[in-house]
Design a protein around this nucleic acid. Structure first.
Lengths: 242, 242
DNA sequence: CGCGTCCTTGACACCAGTCAAGCGTTGTGG
DNA sequence: CCACAACGCTTGACTGGTGTCAAGGACGCG
């Protein structure tokens, strides 16, 4: 199986075989983390970068009244905290959702990577900027769409992100989030997530059973969600007939 | 008057006098842009970086039905598009809100700056990462707070951001946004913005007249908004009694 | 003076929140 | 093997925050 981090970065920059070998070497040592465990907590200043190789994780913030807001999710190939060193401390926490296979890379290793391999440096820049673009799209999603469209949009985004690190998932994929976790992402109550899921199922837009999501008609779901994948900036590797 | 961009960057990195002189030189040539004019449009791939020296601007996205969503606002000292070159094209547009004084910096100038002045490079990194942190906080704001708290939070954030580039604004500042523009930021209707503003005024949390915002009791407004300035990462320059 | 822009207000409708109860599955220990 | 608890999912009734529609007012500008 290909390294999902390398798969992803190839969307953002052209990497040589040597670049890929260097990145592969950095991922040699992995560790397994159970579901629902904090990887980094708000206020920390970690000394290494973490990378998800398998599983789902999420960035979240806690409110003073104990409610949780998930501000991003991480899929295989995503970095947790590429640049916290510059900010000084985490302004949010990161936790696993499912069990995850993680890699820890010391900061000086990252700095060497960046200073010695310009294409890797560019690829990491690209990854950071795409994360920012996703945040902007989420803002639109939260601010201006109904809960049903928000949820549909999430499905569409997740599908594209998963497809760019694995070669399946075209019409369905493993979807392990609980309705409560979804409610934290979408800014609605768990009860309402349930109602909206029922509606999407009734309308034939999705199938969801036993943590497996099916999308019978991708174009129809994307139209409903007003989804336009441009903001994910994945053009480079998808076949184009130019 | 000090250069707001340099004021801001000093929060993120320690700049030498030489660094500051270099940055100052880059801002020599300014241009004046009228209110409500697009600076960059979605899909473009600009050949220079733009910087706001005076006035307010905003990043926005249009939805297919013509509604607009403002995903960030820019104050003096903020860069428009520091790194679009890496992503290839803008996934959103930027427009002035008020009249603005702008600087255009060619990309190769920025690249020289970054490669020759490590502290400036770090400061620009810092600025990018703070932008991302603001997006995350906005996500929490939109997803989990009522319209009144959202609006109050916006006021609190704007106050801190303005204070870090100018030495006034402690208890009030020029606030030129129309209620319609606010509605685009907060994801509510203009009518509801109006109702919420009335409520905040009634409760004595704000004064707002003739485009001037007054905050009689900053602590009370911040408590109401659940505002915690940590995410703005401005610690470096605010006086600390360590 | 007349027009446009923005602000203000009221009545009503709807999306989503709250509260509460019940169901199915899983895992655990007696 | 079964009782039980824990967890997540489902559903209904009611409430409330916000959207929609509509009308009018204040102000600036040509």
């Amino acid at each position: 199986m290909a390294n999902p981090m390398i798969c992803k970065l190839e969307h953002g920059a052209s990497l040589t075989d040597e670049d890929k070998a260097v990145l592969e070497a950095v991922c040699a040592e992995t560790r397994r983390v159970p579901p629902r465990v904090d990887l980094i907590e708000e206020g920390e200043n970690p000394r290494f970068v973490q990378l998800v190789l398998d599983g789902f994780a999420c960035r979240y913030k806690m409110l003073s009244d104990g409610r949780r807001s998930i501000v991003a999710y991480l899929v295989p190939g995503d970095f947790c905290d590429l640049h916290v060193a510059i900010l000084g401390q985490m302004d949010h926490s990161i936790a696993t959702v499912t069990g995850c296979t993680m890699v820890q890379i010391p900061y000086d290793t990252v700095e060497k990577l960046v200073s010695r391999h310009p294409r890797i440096a560019r690829a990491l820049w690209w990854a950071t900027l795409v994360d920012e673009a996703v945040l902007r799209e989420w803002l639109v999603n939260l601010g201006r769409r109904t809960a049903a469209r928000r949820l549909a949009h999430l499905f569409c985004e997740l599908r594209v992100r998963l497809m760019s690190v694995a070669h399946d998932g075209e019409n369905g994929f493993h979807f392990p989030f609980t309705q409560e976790e979804l409610s934290h992402m979408l800014g609605v109550t768990p009860v309402h997530v349930n109602r909206v899921l029922q509606q999407l199922r009734e309308d034939g837009l999705i199938l969801l059973e036993d943590k497996m999501l099916g999308i019978p008609d991708v174009a129809r779901l994307e139209a409903f969600a007003e989804f336009d994948a441009t903001y994910l900036h994945r053009a480079r590797r998808t076949p184009e007939f130019a």
